[in-house]
Design a protein around this nucleic acid. Structure first.
Length: 570
RNA sequence: GGGCACGUGGCCUAGCCUGGAUAGGGCAAUAGCCUCCUAAGCUAUAGAUCAGGGGUCCAAAUCCCCUCGUGCCCGCCA
């Protein structure tokens, strides 16, 4: 017999708030409190109600702003009385200039449990009709992807998962640069090599040689320019070979990304836009504004800066190809999101102005910028060889994790050890990047990258493994106690806050709020774990098993967004 | 030189958008905790002029201005 009988009662009483967001569906207690307050003081805003972090309450209504009102005391009293009548409200107290509201543990638990039981998910969402195209990574196929660029991939991938989770229809794309100087430099290196071997090490060596030569003699760039011309004029041999070389490089990048669980939906080749309809559309939209300077074509922006579209020899520049690409994207998507390095900030601003004001793109465009990751030895660069590639990092991380798991679990067979080590390594890499807000520059340090304690993925994974064991042994059916101690209480509260962090992530196009949230959640669970025995806890057992199972659910949900692989045993 | 971003204990970081009750975590350090659901965990101690200065405000890490430091951009590169 299910003892979870309060659901219907609460469901009827609590306002299902869609106003917090269009696509997250859950019984939003916070929204409901604001609604109640507004009945009495219409100008109470969302800002006046804090989600309290100080431990005084669940939600705090700040009275500073209201205290100027002539009938303040009466209003305050009315709010208190009205809130106390809400079915989900446990207590309302006035402390100084704060009105502290506590919600019933059972209310929270019931909201989450009902959602999971009925919808299979908390919070539930409905499908937003907006189609989102998220472009990320798009690194030049001139070498293996390095850890600096992988910040783009990791954040981009998690962001796409967040938006999907939130209810958007999301596709991801990688814009493959197979046109322009860098790639032609790569191709030139290949042509100059004796053996003409198309594999990554040989190509990379040729590429580095070319740029070494150019550094000594700038005149050597002419060779690249000549190749660009040949390529853009459609010389079949050149086109074929460039595609072949880029494909080899791209395959390397794709397989590196796959190792950390990233799969991009579509790869769109830049060369495809050279003579495309989208290119024509862009050019005709801009035709009135195009000016020339020594035969090179440019347009002028509102701030007076020049943006060049074509070289004097008629070959295209990146901006032009990218404009065509964005035009292409806008045909099928309502919201375009580009994840770009911070070096692209000004570029994106220009691109945006051209697209919105001159090409009149219909889609909404957002840019997400990330700061660079550098090494102790300075800036990362594929050409100079001062890089740590993603593959190197993965390999070392796996090795490191394997040693640790071997020492901790000598009882496990080799297969399991490798499985665990791999999940730990990949999750740790992703989490370490995802948890840092994008504006921070990072200096990569091996000691930090390989540390698996504290605010790390294994910390999260470990707590999940604990839940597996608990739920395997705990009694989950029967009468449920409805008395909650402080550890249960704070874990329940933390769980309930999950939708708010999803909201923060979506609003800011960030993934670090989810990471911060998960760490807080796990800490709260550990507190609970260390103080509340579940298995064999008598009257508490069913209730605690319920809390653990909701925890497990939310943890799984959030971990997926961050690319953390959870294991039942580790 | 101009523009943009960042600056929080020795190190890394959350909080800043939307000002409000003791600035949360982690690493490193010290002292403890496995006859009890996995110690990749937990507890305790120590450690913060929230870069500096000014301003607004009843109230500033948070908003505004100035200064300093770091990174990035200012290409007929991408």
């Amino acid at each position: 017999m299910p003892v979870w009988i309060l659901s219907d009662r609460f469901k009827k009483m609590i306002y299902t708030a869609r106003s917090l967001s269009r696509v997250l569906l859950f019984d939003d207690v916070r929204e409901s409190i604001i609604r109640v307050c507004r009945k009495i003081v219409p100008d109470v805003g969302s800002k006046d109600l804090d989600t309290d972090r100080t431990g005084h309450a669940d939600f705090s209504l700040k009275l500073f702003r209201l205290s100027g009102k002539p009938d303040f005391d009466q209003l305050k009293e009315n709010i208190v009385i009205t809130l106390r009548n809400e079915i989900y409200v446990d207590s309302v107290t006035v402390e100084g200039n704060y009105l502290n509201i506590k919600v019933k543990d059972l209310s929270y638990l019931d909201i989450m449990d009902t959602s999971i039981k009925e919808k299979g998910v908390f919070p539930d969402t409905f499908q937003d009709p907006e189609r989102v195209l998220l472009e990320h990574t798009s690194t030049n196929p001139t070498g293996p992807i390095h850890i600096g660029r992988s910040r783009n991939s990791i954040v981009g991938d998690s962001l796409s998962r967040v938006l999907k989770r939130y209810g958007y229809r999301v596709s991801t794309q990688y814009f493959v640069n197979d046109t322009g100087k860098q790639v032609m430099g790569l191709y030139l290196g290949y042509r100059k090599s004796k053996e003409r071997i198309v594999d990554i090490p040989h190509l990379l060596e040729g590429y580095r040689n070319v740029y070494r030569e150019i550094e000594e003699d700038k005149g050597k760039e002419k060779e690249i320019e000549a190749l660009i011309k040949k390529y853009e004029s459609g010389d079949p041999a050149v086109v074929r070979e460039v595609r072949e070389i880029c494909t080899v490089m791209l395959k390397g990048i794709i397989s590196s990304l796959a190792r950390i669980g990233i799969k991009i939906d579509d790869y769109v080749w830049e060369s495809g836009f050279l003579k495309s309809e989208e290119m024509n559309d862009v050019l005709s939209a801009l035709s009135e504004r195009i000016k020339t300077e020594n035969d090179a074509q440019f347009i002028e922006l509102s701030n007076g800066s020049k943006v060049f579209l074509r070289r004097a020899d008629g070959t295209s520049l990146y901006t032009l190809r990218d404009l065509a690409y964005h035009k292409f994207k806008s045909l099928n998507y309502d919201w375009l999101i580009d994840v770009l390095g911070e070096d692209h900030r000004d570029y994106a601003k220009s691109l945006n102005e051209i697209l919105q004001e001159m090409v009149n793109l219909r889609s909404k465009i957002s840019f997400v910028f990330y700061s660079f990751i550098s090494l102790d030895s300075g800036k990362m660069s594929t050409r100079s060889g001062n890089v740590v590639t993603l593959d190197e990092l993965i390999e070392k991380a796996e090795q490191n994790a394997l040693e640790i798991v071997k020492s901790k679990r000598p009882d496990l067979p080799d297969d399991d050890l490798h499985k665990i080590a791999s999940a730990v390594a990949v999750s740790a890499i992703r989490f370490q990047i995802a948890k840092i807000s994008l504006g921070k520059e990072l200096v990569f340090k091996w000691s930090e990258a390989l540390n698996l304690e504290g605010d790390s993925a294994p910390y999260i994974m470990y707590s999940y493994a604990r839940t597996t064991k608990i739920l395997k042994e705990a009694r989950v059916d029967g009468n449920m106690s409805t008395v909650f101690d402080k550890y249960e209480s704070s874990l329940i509260r933390k769980l309930y806050l999950y939708p708010y962090s999803l909201q923060a992530a979506k609003d800011g196009l960030r993934v670090d709020p989810i990471a911060s949230y998960v760490l807080e959640l796990v800490r709260s669970f550990n507190d609970f774990y260390n103080n509340c025995r579940v298995v064999g806890s008598g009257e508490h057992e069913v209730k605690r098993a319920k809390i653990v199972s909701i925890y497990r659910h939310v943890l799984k949900d959030a971990s997926y967004l961050l690319g953390i692989t959870l294991l039942d045993e580790m």
